[in-house]
């Protein structure tokens, strides 16, 4: 509880400091906006040529992309910068300074860095979601809304866990930052489109190894009421929250292993 209070204070302080440089604050947001606007644009251009991709129409693909973007934005807001820079903090010795404070080292790490540009992802995700909602055939019953929120929470956990796991490799690797960048940016770009368009290998990879497919593709099957054209069990469309929780438990376990290693090797 007190950790959350501290985080909120940190968040407030950071925003206050960042917004003092108002110009660069908005430029950050804007540049993130434009990166993703370009992704939307490329989806749109693609659909100018093809009527559908593997049976998914433009709005459906945008819907998938939105779930990805929003859950990533939320996870990245808290976790990306701290874990991306973990390796650097270990290298510079700053990490030692996290360890002589009376709070969980992980929480302290999270309270240490922050990247306001992820706020841009969230805003953009909400705006685009609002626009494409009417074009989708989703009936928002109360049950559906609740399930959607649960799925978003699961997607958030998956995104967060993947960031945490890849950043935690910094306890072993001296170039873990590039591992994190590769997984979180390159691999995640696969789920811009429905994973059923990829070959078996990629589908297995995105389902069992780096399970990004559970962020948007599988729950998408449920919400858009699609024929499941993936290789695996139809039950996968309900598994997002479970995958999220399991992955987060694994991520925390992996973090503990990394910490134990650090406490015995000091590097």
């Amino acid at each position: 509880m007190s950790n959350i209070k501290l985080y909120l204070l940190f968040f407030k302080t950071y925003l206050k400091v960042k917004s003092e440089y108002r110009f660069s604050f908005f430029m950050d947001l804007f540049s993130q906006f434009s990166t993703f606007a370009i992704t939307y644009l490329s989806i749109w251009i693609l659909f100018g040529r093809f009527k559908d991709i593997n049976g998914w129409n433009f709005y459906e693909v945008v819907f998938l992309y939105n779930i990805n973007l929003f859950s990533y934005g939320l996870a990245g807001l808290f976790f990306f910068n701290p874990l991306r820079f973990l390796e650097e903090m270990i290298h510079s010795g700053e990490f030692d300074c996290l360890m002589h404070k009376p709070m969980s080292v992980f929480m302290h790490l999270i309270c240490r860095r922050f990247n306001q540009s992820y706020l841009g992802y969230l805003i953009l995700g909400i705006i685009v979601f609002r626009f494409c909602m009417d074009k989708l055939n989703i009936i928002w019953t109360v049950a559906n809304v609740i399930w959607f929120i649960i799925v978003m929470a699961g997607a958030f956990l998956i995104q967060a866990s993947i960031i945490i796991i890849s950043g935690t490799t910094g306890f072993w690797l001296t170039r873990s930052a590039s591992v994190t960048e590769t997984i979180v940016h390159r691999f995640r770009s696969f789920i811009t489109y429905p994973v059923s368009i990829y070959n078996t290998f990629v589908q297995i990879l995105l389902t069992f190894v780096i399970p990004y497919a559970f962020v948007n593709y599988y729950p998408g099957i449920y919400f858009l009421d699609r024929e499941d054209s993936s290789l695996f069990s139809p039950y996968f469309q309900y598994l997002t929250p479970v995958v999220g929780i399991v992955l987060m438990i694994l991520a925390m376990g992996f973090w503990r292993i990394g910490m134990n290693r650090y406490q015995s090797t000091g590097s």
């Binding site: 007190s2 950071y14 400091v17 510079s92 700053e94 300074c97 240490r112």
Partner: peptide, 29 residues
């Protein structure tokens, strides 16, 4: 305990000293 490592800082890099102090104040209650 209090700890100072000469070559590195426990303060928040990007934010003013006064805010770092305030955060620590809450961390230690």
């Amino acid at each position: 305990i209090g700890v100072v490592f000469g070559q590195r800082t426990q303060l928040w890099w990007d934010i003013p000293v006064v805010d770092s102090i305030n955060l620590m104040r809450h961390m230690y209650k």
